[in-house]
């Protein structure tokens, strides 16, 4: 049996425990609500977290690259980047997968599995940085783009170099 097969076989148990560990990073009173499997529009954090973790497990069980991992992580990291988490806390949930794997996966795969999780963590840090950059850019440019852009079109302010501000986002 390969580690991929083992991941597939244990998909549901891994997902369930990893999801619980992730939701438990929230305060207990909130975790109760966020962990509920209800309509995704009534509980976006819970629903998006569950879906993302599921995607990651599927990816690990098939082919993945640093890029695909990062993309798959985006929804949950994007949420955690604006919540009351430190950078470490924001990605800590990925490390929880190691503990979960330890109890579920065949110990023969332990080392290989740890390495896989490490790759997920690195992808997570990358994505977190991007999301934080998005936030800071929004902070820096929101009013300029909305208000000064209109002024500029009207020729009321001309000295503002709007393109410079926007340019940094595209790169």
């Amino acid at each position: 049996m390969t580690i991929k097969q083992c991941l597939k076989d244990n998909h549901n148990r891994l997902l369930k425990q990893w999801f619980q560990a992730t939701i438990n990073t929230y305060p207990a009173q909130s975790a109760k609500i966020l962990g509920k499997d209800v309509d995704r529009f009534d509980n976006p954090v819970g629903a998006v977290t569950r879906e993302t973790l599921e995607d990651i497990l599927h990816l690990l069980a098939s082919d993945y690259t640093a890029d695909t991992l990062e993309k798959a992580l985006d929804p949950v990291i994007r949420i955690r980047a604006v919540q009351a988490f430190s950078a470490a806390e924001a990605v800590s949930f990925i490390f929880a997968l190691k503990d979960v794997g330890e109890t579920i996966m065949d110990s023969a795969f332990a080392r290989e599995f740890d390495r896989m999780v490490d790759q997920v963590v690195l992808a997570g840090f990358n994505r977190l940085m991007k999301c934080r950059e998005d936030i800071f850019l929004l902070k820096a440019t929101e009013s300029k783009r909305r208000i000064h852009a209109a002024f500029e079109r009207a020729g009321l302010v001309q000295e503002l170099k709007e393109e410079d501000l926007l340019g940094s986002k595209k790169s």
């Binding site: 509920k36 499997d37 209800v38 309509d39 995704r40 629903a47 879906e51």
Partner: peptide, 11 residues
């Protein structure tokens, strides 16, 4: 309602 995976949700 039914959730995304089309299970009747429990509340």
């Amino acid at each position: 309602n039914r959730n995304a995976s089309n299970r009747i949700t429990y509340s």
